[in-house]
Design a protein around this nucleic acid. Structure first.
Lengths: 203, 203
DNA sequence: TGATTTTACTGAACACTGTTCAGTATATTT
DNA sequence: AAATATACTGAACAGTGTTCAGTAAAATCA
């Protein structure tokens, strides 16, 4: 009797359909301007249907966020390829910032907007855990071979993540306008600043 | 004929009334949950009235943001008192982070939410300019006496601001949950990380 | 002072938001 | 074939930012 199995599969497919429609809307119109009705229109279902698969908008956002972290992780694995630990760290920083600049809406969902964090308590490690581990391992290797000034792993993780996130998020939220950097120079400036920073804290 | 003058004054007073009601709502219920109707209720006027003084919500937010930057600047002048340049930088970092932790709603308005930046182009330097100058002068002094590793002023400003903002904003948006730091240890951790960072980039 | 114009304000209305739920139509089981 | 279970709808609710015709008070003019 394969009916319940098929139903289960169909349910998953429907969730995937909703999720991908949500992602499409986010990339086209921005997370902030995408409503449940927009997503429903996209897949030609009624708004109510979405609530049969996700208990609220936050849960849907959390699910899309999860995929977004998957993409960042993939970017890490593709670009952080060096055998030299400090060089790996540089590649990691460059990848993070480039990802943020090239995927502003995903970055918003992952690190800036409040919404997807209103999810049930204990599952907070699920999203982003892989990416954090990647950074953590990279830094642990640096510390192990003594090429990092800071020797506490958690402190190092926090510091480098904060710097990278600060650069990306200040830019995404237009706060760097106050510094009057030319628009087209911004990416290079951010990358150079990150590179510079990593050089400062390694030896 | 003092009538136009009085009218002008009354107009200013009304703007001030609206602004302070907005601030009150922001601090009590959060920026995100405060509507024009809430603010109108607070001052016992109709919603439409607010639009006689501010062309839209963004303009009001921008005005409140301006005051918030004033408060940060005041915090700088009160806490950054040392004569030693590097020590001043440490005081600045500590003040920034403490301000962010103690005034989360104001910090949101100043550095995170999109809204108040949708204001007419060229006046972007107005809000936050003073605070940026404060940091800029502090770092210029460090560079002048050769106590900073980085020698480019703009690069230094960007790096230290990004780090501080990264720490505060990741925390305000609950993204540090992934690191499983105990809630009560967060402020100390952030301050220690900032202090540590400044030590790394100075000599 | 009395009539007229200007100003300040109201609150209903518009188009939107997330979310719920009675009703319906289809698919599955008995 | 009848009964049940599932999937979906779309109107409705309470909220949002914003507009604007209508009103009442204040300032100006005669």
């Amino acid at each position: 009797m394969g009916v319940p199995e098929r139903k289960e599969r169909e349910k998953m497919e429907m969730k995937e359909l909703i999720k991908s429609a949500a992602l499409k809307c986010f990339l086209e119109d921005g997370v902030a301007k995408t409503s449940i009705r927009n997503i429903a229109d996209e897949i030609e279902y009624s708004p109510g249907t979405i609530y049969l698969y996700y208990k609220d908008k936050d849960e849907l956002l959390y699910d899309v966020q999860s995929d977004a972290f998957g993409k960042l992780w993939q970017a890490f694995t593709e670009n952080v390829t060096s055998n030299n630990t400090v060089e790996r760290l540089q590649q990691l920083g460059k990848t993070y910032i480039t990802f943020g600049l090239q995927n502003p809406e995903l970055y918003d969902l992952m690190f800036i907007i409040r919404a997807p964090m209103n999810v049930d308590e204990e599952i907070h490690k699920a999203n982003g855990g892989n990416c954090l581990d990647f950074l953590s391992e990279c830094l642990a290797a640096c510390i192990a071979e003594g090429s990092l000034i800071v020797t506490d792993l958690n402190a190092a993780v926090l510091q480098i993540w904060a710097t990278a996130h600060g650069l990306v998020s200040l830019n995404l939220r237009c706060r760097l306008k106050v510094m009057q950097t030319k628009e087209e120079e911004v990416p290079d400036t951010l990358l150079a600043t990150m590179e510079n920073y990593i050089r400062s804290v390694t030896k």
